[in-house]
């Protein structure tokens, strides 16, 4: 078994070595530094990165009567290195709790939305009707990138 785990081996034909390395040795080597991170939010951030930061940002910018339309995942994926799972209303809710949001796929409630998420490289903001962004154009971009 010791040979199967192959502590020094990076041989791709030995799955035990790679599995042991990534699931035991990696954590062991970082155990002290990881244990110093006490905040649950920080631990979630380590795994979710932008998928946590973006919902937090959106919620921090909400006004009392805002109903936010979450963009389709394809649109958000264009600006993220990881899969933009935050666009799923269940994941958004898991990250930051219940808020007035509408999934892009929710065609029945989409018309109630009055706040929209705009993404650009390294930039995110909330736009509202009458603002600098043309909402119809944004919705067209959303639709095309579904």
């Amino acid at each position: 078994m010791w040979l199967l785990i192959g502590f020094q081996s990076n041989d791709e034909f030995n799955p035990y070595a790679a599995s042991y390395e990534s699931r035991v040795e990696l954590y062991r080597s970082k155990l002290d530094s990881l244990n110093k991170i006490r905040s649950v939010r920080e631990r979630i951030y380590m795994r979710q990165m932008a998928n946590l930061e973006i919902p937090e940002y959106i919620v921090s910018k909400l006004r009392p009567n805002d109903v936010v339309l979450l963009p389709p995942r394809g649109y958000a994926n264009r600006f993220m290195q990881t899969e933009a799972i935050w666009t799923d209303p269940r994941i958004f809710t898991w990250m930051v709790g219940f808020h007035d949001i509408v999934a892009f796929a929710d065609t029945a409630r989409r018309s109630q939305a009055n706040a929209f998420v705009v993404l650009e490289a390294n930039t995110i903001w909330i736009t509202r009707p009458g603002g600098s962004t043309n909402i119809d154009s944004l919705l067209n971009v959303y639709e095309r990138s579904k």
Partner: peptide
């Protein structure tokens, strides 16, 4: 390591975040 990882990390699988948890 198994007990530590299950205690340390928050829930990460998509299905669990979107459902169970």
């Amino acid at each position: 390591m198994i007990l530590w990882a299950s205690w340390y990390w928050p829930v990460t699988p998509f299905d669990a975040m979107a459902g169970i948890d």
